[in-house]
């Protein structure tokens, strides 16, 4: 087999040997960029991340949230569809009777371990009631303790305000601390609440 060799044309001659025309050409380019960026920084495409955030598509699968009905009750009917379909087994639901008679069944416990979640979105597709969504636009979850990643029912319901959904600069600051979480609802970690 004959080897295919591509021979590059090399430009030789006094112009190349002098280096100066090449250097001046290069300087013309870099000086142009320098001056344009010195006054106005028009070419800089960097996003200063913590202060500025990139636009996130509404189809991005971000952190989960539980939706509410118009009357304020959770949409979730604790049908276990999402828990069954979840490939990483990160959802834990315990169904219960609601004190209000208009609600047939509701999740007493609805935990998602965000550290186990693979963000596949199957729970959203499986849900018959549109009760769980991943449209929060929260793309990075960076917390300092593992407990913070155990999202309980009330946290999933309250930590995202759909009215500010249009705001891309959603601030992820006012999360309840793990202490408040247990106050809101005992975090079962798969163990039924006592």
């Amino acid at each position: 087999m004959e080897l295919k060799v591509k021979r590059m044309e090399r430009v030789d001659g006094i112009k190349e040997a002098m280096f100066l025309p090449g250097i001046i050409n290069g300087l013309r380019l870099t000086v142009k960029h320098f001056w344009r960026n010195l006054f106005g920084a028009r070419d800089v495409v960097t996003v200063n991340y913590p202060e500025e955030k990139r636009h996130v598509s509404h189809r991005w699968r971000g952190r989960h949230r539980l939706t509410r009905l118009d009357n304020g009750f959770l949409s979730c009917v604790a049908c276990y569809m999402c828990e069954t379909v979840c490939p990483s087994k990160c959802i834990h639901i315990e169904a219960g009777e609601h004190p209000d008679l208009s609600v047939e069944k509701y999740p007493v416990v609805f935990d998602i371990d965000e550290l186990r979640c693979v963000f596949c979105g199957l729970c959203v597709e499986a849900c018959p009631k549109d009760a769980i969504r991943m449209d929060t636009g929260i793309v990075s979850m960076a917390y300092t303790s593992r407990q913070t990643f155990d999202f309980t029912r009330d946290l999933l319901r309250d930590s995202y305000d759909p009215n500010t959904h249009s705001n891309p600069k959603y601030k992820d600051k006012d999360l309840p601390t793990p202490a408040n979480q247990t106050e809101a609802l005992p975090n079962s970690h798969g163990v039924p609440a006592s």
């Binding site: 870099t30 960029h33 320098f34 010195l38 920084a41 070419d43 800089v44 960097t46 200063n48």
Partner: peptide, 13 residues
């Protein structure tokens, strides 16, 4: 700082 301007970066800030 100047190199960042030449290369369309933000530079140390």
């Amino acid at each position: 700082k100047w190199s960042s301007m030449i290369q369309d970066r933000v530079g140390p800030n």
